[in-house]
Design a binder for these strands. Structure first.
Length: 893
RNA sequence: GGAGGCUUAGCUCAGCUGGUUCAGAGCACCUGCCUUACAAGCAGGGGGUCACUGGUUCGAAUCCAGUAGCCUCCACCA
């Protein structure tokens, strides 16, 4: 049974009172602020960007699938983009974040097909137009969901610029590009071995094929040698393809098989005669060293077939079932056929043995069907030439990858790039602008009208003109995204395009480096001779605590919307960012969101504190002034750090630096120092300073936590603001100089306070008991700090003495020697002696190591002078401390 | 098979071109506190032979080589 602590009960009651607005809520309630401010920002056009004289800062959002639903990956990705955009906006740049969605050809078509099937409609029974009508209906119904979800996340996109890859203008850009690349000679049509997805019934690019290791059987099949009683044995994982065999291949150097040269063998089950050919491609060590050649169903075999002029027998239908060419098992699915063929062979006594075998099998990225290599007529894009400048951009630093480690695989891919199969046998997508006449001759043209002219110009028949049935690979249109969203493909001289392009940062997942990033660079360069962006920030993969990738099928992915409900959007944003350095996978755990929520609450309560103060007309006290000088310097130091983190795209470090500045420096030290005693008003001058600092730290956090900062920004505590004076456009702090000496001095003060608290803690003395503190020696201006120390360390009497204090606990902070005298029965002389001895021991060991270094001639000779000097300083410091400690020891008696 | 990366506190990770903030941060943990901003908090504290083995160097978490384990990408061994 859960027993309630009194604090829990009190909190419950307080929260209850909060709900009735009886006081400022004790905890931050995100819900209200989130709804209020997002629509406020929208209504007032803060996200809107149009070209002006300011410096542009542009990000194009990686368009999510139009029918997609927000997942953790989107959450991370878009949070990062929003942080970058918001900060740039506050820095006075013209920040433009373009949102949009991708038509995701194969994924969406698969979804629509499945939806229709549920309604009892077979895709085959529909015409192209009928099907597309259903698809558009589906898109209209579900298309907006993910963008709405991004609003909840606070994404400050320019929604008026929202684009969809199948919008009329973007579609036209795709067609124009196809024609341009065709005219430049990069696009060609031909029969090639492609990756066939029998479920989607379409060709796929190499990138869309995922290889997975699969447990298979390796069948050792006997092939009878013609005019002989002998058999040769061939190992295969695909017995169902033997009906398509057109040769047997051996390695010419394989002495075991010299007797086979020039022989003919008989394919089992179908009894077709095929020749034995020789090629060094065959590995003698693998299997039996004998390979069956099936040109229609294996890429290597296809190439062997061309080389040796073999016939091609295609025994598979588009859906992966066997066709008439197979002669047997016609109509059976390839996997069922595999088992049946194996059984038939076994019954015929033609299986030597069956072994377990692991091998890599290709699967469709979208449908997860096993890929079938298939010969077919497809459209291709030549990549070799196009890839060269795209590689150079990254090589010479025009485009930077963050982290850099991804450059290696990018380079490898670019240098070994193969032609890109761009046609897909689908309906949902951009239809290829190629036209055929009744003689199957073809031309590439934008419209039927132009096609007609083209045919005429070539003196060819114009009867029966029809358009190519295929659509283009989705990534063909995504590749244009940074240009097409600004209409830069059709109309490169338009103002938007000239102003926003090249864009600045691209934030995306490394998984689509080749699919998308590389192709954007290629196409961007082909059109503009410019890179589409300058920096590519590659996020990690969001994984669960066990390191598994978050996925629907595993059910291990929390719903981002629910998370935001539970922890507040700001809390979740902080949670996502805290542990996600660029390129590193993020082991997601809700405790990060908890931390983010707690941080929001901390800020909220700092606000409550300041808000609750009464004011009196008065100038600041010495302590308050000293605290303000310190905090100003500390603030400037933090801003410099944060700037550097951002410059290196280390967002989690930038956030952590902000977090510590607020939590530790602002709340725990600064506010505690200036805070007036209970029910005492604060000096008006100090309150102004506090409010000023408060607003400054709020602007620093705003990119990370947009809602709570905007909410507080508008509180009357900070004065009345006119409607447009929002934190979203408030100036982001600039790095200014800071005095290290001030920060260092203050850290000595902090040490003294901590030491006194520690003494109290370790002696079991209540914090309420004030203790006397004596200072023997110090190198700092104590007058400035003594009140602070008295206040925060709860000192009853602070004295300066010119000697050691007998019977007291001593410690050294910086170069200041301090004594705390406790009531006599509290002093354990033995324990003190032991403590001092321990410290002495450490210092002496430290000293000898320093001395050893300094007496090493090679060190003094080779090391940089400042390093040597440092060692000398260390030596002097250690000696001084040792002296003090030894005296303290003697003093203990 | 090729390429790249990782291994630092219980967890997630920083540690730039070798030498004072070289052993860090956040969280978690332990102790004491319902102190009138915050128990989603305050104060204090304890945790690591920097994977292993060698080498280079006056000096190595940091550079080099090897070993082990893990990860990612690429690749047609039937």
């Amino acid at each position: 049974m859960h027993t309630f602590k009194s604090s829990e009960i009190r909190n419950f009651v307080l929260q209850f009172l909060n709900d009735f607005n009886m006081s400022i809520a004790k905890t931050y309630n995100p819900k209200e602020a989130e709804e209020k401010w997002y629509s406020y920002w929208m209504e007032n056009g803060f996200f809107r960007s149009v070209p002006d004289e300011r410096e542009p800062y542009t990000i194009v959002m990686p368009p999510p699938n139009v029918t997609g639903v927000l997942h953790m990956g989107h959450m991370l990705n878009n949070t990062i983009q929003d942080v970058l955009i918001r900060r740039a906006r506050m820095q006075g740049k013209n920040a433009c974040w373009v949102p949009g969605t991708d038509h995701a050809s194969i994924a969406t078509e698969a979804k629509v097909v499945a939806m229709l099937k549920e309604k009892g409609i077979d895709k085959k029974s529909l015409t192209r137009d009928e099907f597309l009508k259903h698809a558009w209906e589906w898109k209209e119904k579900y298309g907006g969901i993910i963008l709405k979800q991004l609003e909840k996340l606070g994404a400050s996109c320019d929604w008026e610029r929202t684009k969809f890859t199948m919008d009329p203008d973007l579609s036209e850009a795709v067609i124009d590009t196809f024609i341009k690349l065709y005219k430049e000679g990069y696009i060609y049509r031909g029969v090639r071995m492609v990756n066939w997805d029998p479920q989607g019934k379409t060709a796929l690019s190499d990138e869309e094929v995922i290889r997975k290791e699969v447990n298979q059987k390796l069948y050792y099949v006997r092939y009878k040698i013609k005019d002989s009683d002998k058999y040769i044995i061939i190992a295969t994982t695909r017995p169902e393809t033997i009906m398509a065999d057109t040769a047997i291949c051996i390695n010419p150097n394989d002495e075991r098989y010299t007797y086979l040269k020039g022989k003919t063998v008989i394919v089992p089950l179908v009894n077709r005669e095929i020749p034995v050919i020789e090629d060094e491609y065959v590995e003698m060590e693998f299997g039996t060293g004998c390979l069956k050649v099936t040109p229609a169903h294996d890429l290597n075999d296809y190439e062997l077939g061309i080389k040796h002029n073999l016939p091609v027998i295609d025994i598979l239908n588009d859906d992966g079932t066997l066709n008439e060419n197979a002669q047997i098992l016609v109509g059976e699915d390839r996997f069922i056929a595999r088992k049946k063929v194996a059984k038939l062979l076994e019954e015929a006594g033609q299986i030597e043995k069956i072994e377990d075998y692991k091998s890599q099998v290709g699967f469709s990225e979208r449908t997860d069907a096993v890929i079938e290599p298939k010969l077919s007529m497809q459209w291709f894009c030549k990549m070799e030439e196009l890839a060269k400048p795209a590689l150079k951009y990254v090589e010479d630093g025009t485009i930077k990858f963050i982290p850099e480690k991804f450059f290696a695989s990018y380079k490898h891919w670019m240098e070994n790039v193969k032609d890109w199969c761009i046609s897909r046998q689908l309906w949902w997508g951009h239809r290829i602008p190629a036209w055929y006449n009744d003689k199957n001759e073809w031309v590439v043209a934008k419209t039927e009208e132009e096609a007609r002219k083209e045919f005429e110009a070539q003196g060819k028949s114009v009867s029966g003109i029809r358009q190519d049935e295929d659509v283009l690979d989705t990534w063909f249109s995504s590749g244009l995204w940074p240009m097409s969203v600004f209409d830069g493909v059709r109309n490169p001289d338009n103002e938007d395009f000239k102003y926003y392009y090249p864009t600045n940062d691209l934030v995306t997942a490394p998984e689509i480096l080749f699919f998308w990033v590389a192709r954007m660079i290629i196409m961007g360069h082909d059109y503009t001779k410019k890179p589409p962006f300058r920096n590519v920030y590659l996020t990690g993969i969001v994984r669960d605590k066990l390191g598994r990738k978050m996925s629907k099928s595993l059910g291990n992915s929390p719903d981002p919307i629910e998370l935001m409900e539970q922890y507040g959007t700001d809390g979740v944003r902080v949670g996502m960012l805290l542990s996600s350095p660029a390129g590193n996978d993020l082991m997601f755990d809700v405790s990060y969101c908890e931390q983010g929520r707690n941080f929001a609450n901390k800020i909220w309560n700092a606000f409550r504190l300041v808000k609750g103060w009464e004011v009196k007309e008065a100038s600041a006290t010495t302590t308050q002034k000293t605290a303000a000088v310190w905090f100003q310097n500390r603030f400037n130091q933090a801003v410099a750090e944060i700037d550097e983190h951002f410059a290196n795209y280390r967002l989690s470090d930038a956030l952590m630096a902000t977090y510590k500045l607020i939590w530790d420096d602002f709340c725990s030290w600064y506010l505690e120092l200036v805070k007036p005693a209970y029910q005492t008003p604060i000096e008006s001058e100090t309150l102004e300073t506090v409010k000023n600092f408060f607003q400054k730290v709020l602007t620093l956090v705003h990119p990370f936590m947009p809602f709570i900062t905007e909410e507080l920004w508008h509180d009357e505590l900070f004065g009345t603001r006119d409607a447009k004076d929002c934190i979203i456009v408030a100036p982001y702090p600039k790095a200014e100089g800071f005095d290290e000496q001030i920060i260092k001095e203050f850290s000595t003060v902090q040490q003294i306070i901590s030491e006194v608290r520690n003494i109290r803690n370790s002696k079991g003395i209540s914090p309420k008991v004030a203790l006397p503190l004596a200072i023997n020696n110090t190198d700092i201006d104590f007058a400035k700090y003594q009140e602070s120390i008295i206040k925060l360390a709860n000192i009853s009497e602070l004295t300066f003495v010119g000697e050691k204090v007998a019977g007291a606990i001593s410690f050294i902070a910086g170069k200041t020697e301090c004594f705390v005298k406790l009531a006599s029965d509290n002093i354990d002389v033995e324990a003190e002696r032991e403590r001092i001895n321990k410290e002495l021991e450490y210092l002496k060991g430290f000293l000898t190591s320093v001395e050893k270094k300094l007496s090493n001639e090679k060190f003094v000779q080779n090391a940089k002078p400042e390093i040597v000097q440092n060692e000398r300083n260390k030596k002097a410091d250690a000696e001084a401390k040792i002296k003090i400690l030894e005296e303290s020891l003697a003093n203990l008696g």
